[in-house]
Amino acid sequence: MSTPLLLGVYQPGSTVLHRLPVWVKVLSLGALSLTIVLVRDVRAAVGFLALALVLAAIGKVALRTLARSTRGILVIAVIASALQWWAAGPDKAAETLLDLISLALLALTVTATTLVNAILDSLIRGIGPLRRVGVDPERVALTIGLAIQAIPGTVALALETRDAARARGLGSHPRAYLTPFVIRVVARAHETGDALAARGIGDD
């Protein structure tokens, strides 16, 4: 199976972005993403994309990774902006397309320059004070980490299920692959839960 999505794959390096404290990166990503979503303007969207590209270049994110990861996102972005074109015209469509690509690039740049474990550690520290009100920071961080990691696996399951349906000549009917897909995702979640429990993760 080829990897459809290379989310959260760390690329070792020593660029400024690699050395930046994790919380700075995560908070900036949040703030920038919010700005991109809130500022409704095509020219601003071009500016954000340029900024995202510059940041990716500073972090020396490999071109191959960029191209491969954005391919999947491009499909989604193109569909979303086609809908926008139909509903709100070409300006909105261009803005949506550019914004989605910028968001993806920024997220990719953070994950390529930051180990997921480091993000988890930083999250645990960040939400540590919530321990007093009954929140278990370790568990919250692990849940977020798992959600990130589950994406490529789930995409792979979707492709496998689609291929299996096609092989049986059932390709055109969504029920032929949706039902088995949902069952497989739930089964995989159960197995992963068992594996985590067996590894004693979440024990303390």
Partner: peptide, 20 residues
């Protein structure tokens, strides 16, 4: 018990939960 007992499953895809 979990501290003493390690468990290896059939499908490693379900066990490997981190990116690298």
């Amino acid at each position: 018990v979990r501290r003493r007992v390690g468990f290896c499953f059939t499908d490693p895809a379900a066990q490997l939960v981190m990116p690298t």
